[in-house]
Design a protein around this nucleic acid. Structure first.
Length: 485
RNA sequence: GGCGGGGUAGCCAAGUGGUAAGGCACGGCUCUGCAAAAGCUGCAUUCGUCGGUUCGAUUCCGACCCUCGCCUCCA
């Protein structure tokens, strides 16, 4: 089955075909670096990593771009509180973010553009919108996007110029929420959004020069400018959390298509800004929306501090479909540990068996990869994909237990697993090969002697002692086996 | 009010117009001195409720109940 993905634009699962195969441009809205990311943020980033790996699994060459929002209200507030300069404050959080990505085995994006490195592109884009008359400078000096003018702009062939194409919203029918009425902006219409925010004293020394005076960019413009700068005016996939669909992504479309792209040739070529939109659902923690007051707010580091591994967190985050709200729990992490233990046990036994194989590396056994691909290509049905993996584990264990598995067959199965692990990235870490300490080995040998002498009390005491040192002894037909507890 | 997700065993979670994957937990058996690991095996007559269509619905349609999210800067 070829790859099919849900597209928010059409609200349906469609075949995904790159505009210029095998190249695929993938843009993912990244972190705002004012704090450590939480599991909810990382659900989306692991989802992005999965998409990227699945594209590659299907033979595509992906250019993965993830922006880093490093200028924004919360950041500016923290700068005032800490007295730090912008980069001095944001750099450590960017480092922390990358470290967390590594821990969760996410491949690093090929490009991680920072908003503050692309102010020029943003100004250029805003300039085009001004030229076209769908942006205006208000009395407060800020520049806003004029949704009404944009909607009326069908004079540009190829531009849908329809606000609300992503979330099916009628801009005139928006409810006046508390957040809106509290707005003190000088906009013509409440739905208009800021492209450029005029400098105010609270911004300190965070400002840039522009044709509209000193100030800083609005939030949405950075993603429009950076994605088009790195992937072209029209690209294949844009992805983010479901909350970003509106207004963030809707506004990105309006800005990008309204401007005709960063180069300005989008309309002439009748291309959309983004062909395929993907949105990941949020997660609940222990059945509730994550909040600091409920005590269910976890950063990746919090979970590591509780003794869980990034691998376990990754497994749990990848256990449910990306478009479903997922209930992330500590009990779920314990379950992930058990499930991964079974995988490790099976892979370990297969490796022992495969080590006896001679000759060249065999080609992968086809069963698992076929079942896996069938599932994962169906709009990333990870649940079904895991079903295939665990069915495979049972088959291998059965073959191993019956002694039917030849070393060559074991090697072929390991190769099969490796091929799908290019997507899952869940294999145990390449054995940190910490040799079993000599004194533990000595105790195990002593236990063998005690067993031979049928002194089982002594044997059990030795097992307990080994256990207290962090090792587990398992008796196998070929003698005792020592494993990390 | 508008738009959009959900409600499947103790928990997590797939799925289909033809009689319910997988994981965790739990029980039995085999193996073992005992364990561990592994294997075998048991574990939803039932898929929120009520109607309708159908030979047949958890799956399609309608109504209702419950729940969650978005509606201006939150992944």
């Amino acid at each position: 089955m070829s790859l099919r993905l849900h597209n928010t634009l059409t609200r349906s699962v469609e075949a995904f075909v790159p505009s210029a195969p095998p190249q695929v441009g993938l843009y993912c809205c990244g972190p705002t670096v004012y704090d450590f990311g939480h599991v909810g943020n990382f659900r989306t980033f692991v989802f992005a990593d999965l998409v990227r790996r699945v594209l590659a699994f299907n033979g595509m060459q992906v250019t993965h771009v993830m922006n880093v929002t490093d200028v924004e209200d919360k950041i500016l507030r923290r700068l005032r509180e800490t007295g730090l300069a912008l980069r001095a404050f944001t750099d450590p959080y960017i480092e922390a973010f990358l470290a967390d990505l590594d821990v969760l085995r996410c491949l690093r994006p090929h490009h991680l553009p920072r908003a503050t490195d692309h102010i020029g592109d943003m100004i250029r884009l805003i300039g085009r919108l001004m030229e076209r008359g769908i942006a205006y400078q208000a009395a407060d000096g800020s520049v806003y996007f004029n949704i009404e003018r944009y909607q009326a702009a069908e004079r540009w062939p190829g531009c849908a110029c329809r606000y609300g194409q992503l979330v099916h919203i009628d801009p005139g029918q928006q409810r006046q929420t508390g957040r809106v009425s509290a707005d003190e902006y000088d906009k013509d219409h409440v739905a208009d959004f800021a492209l450029w925010k005029a400098r105010v004293p609270e911004d300190g020394d965070v400002f840039w020069d522009s044709p509209w005076g000193q100030g800083r960019p609005g939030w949405h413009i950075e993603c429009s400018a950076m994605s088009m700068a790195l992937l072209g005016d029209s690209f294949d996939i844009h992805l983010g959390g479901e909350d970003l669909a509106f207004p963030h992504h809707e506004d990105e479309i309006a800005q990008s298509e309204g401007a005709g792209g960063l180069r300005g040739d989008l309309h002439g070529r009748k291309l959309p800004f983004v062909r395929h939109w993907l949105h990941g659902a949020h997660l609940l923690v222990e059945g509730r929306k994550m909040s600091k007051s409920l005590g269910n707010y976890f950063t990746v580091r919090d979970l590591l501090g509780r003794g869980f591994s990034g691998r376990e967190v990754r497994f749990l985050l990848l256990s449910a479909h990306y478009r479903e709200t997922f209930n992330f729990t500590l009990a779920g992490l314990e379950g992930a540990r058990s499930a991964l233990g079974r995988l490790d046990e099976c892979l370990g036994k297969l490796r022992e068996r495969a080590a006896l194989a001679a000759g060249p590396a065999p080609s992968p056994s086809p069963g698992l990869p076929e079942a896996f691909k069938e599932a994962i290509n169906d709009d990333l049905n990870v649940s079904r994909a895991w079903g295939a993996v665990f069915d495979w584990i049972r088959e291998q264990n059965r073959a191993l237990a019956s002694g039917d598995l030849t070393p060559a067959a074991a090697a072929a199965e390991l190769a099969a697993f490796a091929s799908i692990d290019a997507v899952l990235a869940i294999a145990p870490a390449p054995a940190t090969q910490d040799e079993t300490p000599a004194h533990v080995v000595a105790l195990a040998a002593e236990r063998v002697a005690a067993k031979k002498a049928r002194d089982f009390a002594r044997a059990d005491a030795l097992r307990a002692e080994i256990r207290s040192m962090g090792w587990v002894v398992e008796d196998t037909p070929s003698g005792p086996k020592l494993k990390r507890a």
